[in-house]
């Protein structure tokens, strides 16, 4: 579970809440446009240590077993994952 993109992104007068209180984790825009470089995982080099998953400020890396999976919708391309990787298995391109 994590905040995720919803289909409904605009709201009519009646749909705008009366109070400043709304469903948690409601996303309407992605962050992929911020990226100038993109991380790619070399599965052969990766040892599944999870350091990239742990240190990603945006939480866009999840571990599918021992393999890191990136959510490119929300990756900003900071490159912390690439730098933290002990096996140089993440390349920024």
């Amino acid at each position: 579970m994590k905040p995720y993109i919803r289909e409904k992104s605009t709201f009519t007068f009646d749909e705008i809440p009366e109070e400043t209180c709304f469903e948690a984790g409601y996303l309407v825009t992605v962050n992929s446009g911020w990226r100038s470089v993109t991380p790619y995982v070399d599965a052969d080099r990766c040892i599944g240590c999870s350091q990239c998953y742990l240190y990603c400020p945006d939480g866009v890396i999840s571990m599918d077993g021992k393999v890191p999976v990136l959510d490119y919708d929300f990756c900003k391309g900071c490159g912390i994952c690439s730098k933290i990787c002990p096996r140089q298995a993440i390349e920024m391109r």
């Binding site: 994590k2 984790g25 962050n31 911020w34 400020p57 945006d58 939480g59 929300f74 900003k76």
Partner: peptide, 20 residues
Amino acid sequence: NEYFYGHKACAGCGGSLAVR
């Protein structure tokens, strides 16, 4: 689970990593 996700912090933000 991720509880702080899709935020608009600058790339590489240390604060967002702490909160996450």
